[in-house]
Design a protein around this nucleic acid. Sequence first.
DNA 1: CGCGTTTGACCTGCGC
DNA 2: GCGCAGGTCAAACGCG
Length: 367
Amino acid sequence: MNEMKQNHNISIVRINSVEKREEKKELTRTALKTENFNMANSAFITPPPTSDIDHMPNVFSPPPPPPPPSSIFDMIPCDISTGGDPKAGSLGFMDLLDINQDFGASAFLFDWCNQNPVVGSPQQQQSFVPSPASSVPETSEVLNNPATPNSSASISSSSNEAGEDAFQQVKAGDQEEEQDQDKNKKQLKPKKRSQKRLREPRFAFMTKSEVDHLDDGYRWRKYGQKAVKNSPYPRSYYRCTSAGCGVKKRVERSSDDPSIVVTTYEGQHIHPSPVIRGSIGILADSSRFGAATSSFVFPQPLYQQKDASMYSSSPSLNFTSSTTRFSPSFSLQERRLGSPPSLLRDHGLLQDIVPSQMIRKESKEEW
DNA sequence: CGCGTTTGACCTGCGC
DNA sequence: GCGCAGGTCAAACGCG
């Protein structure tokens, strides 16, 4: 908490969602060959063209960070129509995301393709189809060239629905087990996860910041810290403190560039961000967002979809001086324009955005 | 006292 | 099967 300060420059990333180990293995091999998606390689993703933004899945709630200018991003195509299932076709964006998950938090991927388990009309469940040639970019140079994704309808949310169900089941199971655990404490803890743990969609981004823990408007409780292999900096684990909200956040500092903090969100908030309450600062100047031209989009948090009138009328990207907050919910207009809040630029908050060239050439790294 | 952090132990999955 | 590394738990502790 006391780490939270100011002056964060944010880059974006979207890590993957579903864990399909077997599929990943195959994808991993492919990715490693191209040296584009291992963790060391921090591939930046360019948001899709603005023409596609209307087709963005308006679903998904991990609090995405403020959007950086698209120019620094690299596009990775995605094929949501296959749900990122490599067996269904070419290597899709979700696949890449999947790969990326194993390669660590400093890989930068956007997940436009994320499916929302709870909400999202079929119309909302759109997807990007990778342009065939760019499905697996050969180099980061290639990544820097905006791809020309087509938009195509149909996203299956089944995987996430399954994940949600599993999540609920796990939660229920945990509650029962927690009672038992009162008896047998730590040592004799019953194994909580007899079944494969299903990961929530992840959303990662980088910030150039002196402090590790960004204030994104939600309240987090640190529940763990681990040393990271090949990195002098530990990784911190946070959980949303709101009751019933299982969103997690991981924060680690790049070993290559200590000034860069990699934050990874996992899961979806089931509650509004406390930050939205105030709607101060940037929020108040929503009119300026319309003028932005860069391509960018953030998915709407779940609660916004449930009650748009309450939460989503204006872009909310809140930075404060004492703490860096971002409550990344953007209006439809903003998402159409796919623009990063111009205020960010005006205020210089993005001026130090991590360049896409910041690519580590390392061996595979788990995360 | 409540809440958040620290930290060592434990759990889990994966590669060899 | 074993070892490694990531992820999680929970007791202990600190702070307001």
